[in-house]
């Protein structure tokens, strides 16, 4: 039997709020992005292509691979 048991959570208390332990993680962006979603939506019209319709229409690629 493997010594390391998978920590699959029972459905009742499946909460993914614990951080991954012992893992290198250089940003804590999980919490940051939540707070910033509203800000991001506020500024997104400035970042988006000015004419979305034309941009989408003109984004034409040849098949690759």
């Amino acid at each position: 039997m493997p010594e390391r048991e998978l920590k699959r959570k029972p459905t009742a208390d499946r909460r993914a709020d614990e951080q991954i332990d012992d893992l290198p993680q250089s940003t804590e962006s999980g919490t940051r992005i939540k707070a910033e979603l509203d800000d991001l939506l506020d500024e997104i019209d400035d970042v988006l292509e000015t004419n979305a319709e034309d941009f989408v229409k003109s984004y034409v690629q040849k098949g690759g691979e």
């Binding site: 998978l6 920590k7 959570k9 993914a16 991954i20 012992d22």
Partner: peptide, 13 residues
């Protein structure tokens, strides 16, 4: 570890 975390989180939220 990341695999396990991601599967647990996909199930939960």
């Amino acid at each position: 570890q990341r695999w396990e975390y991601v599967l647990n989180t996909l199930e939960a939220d």
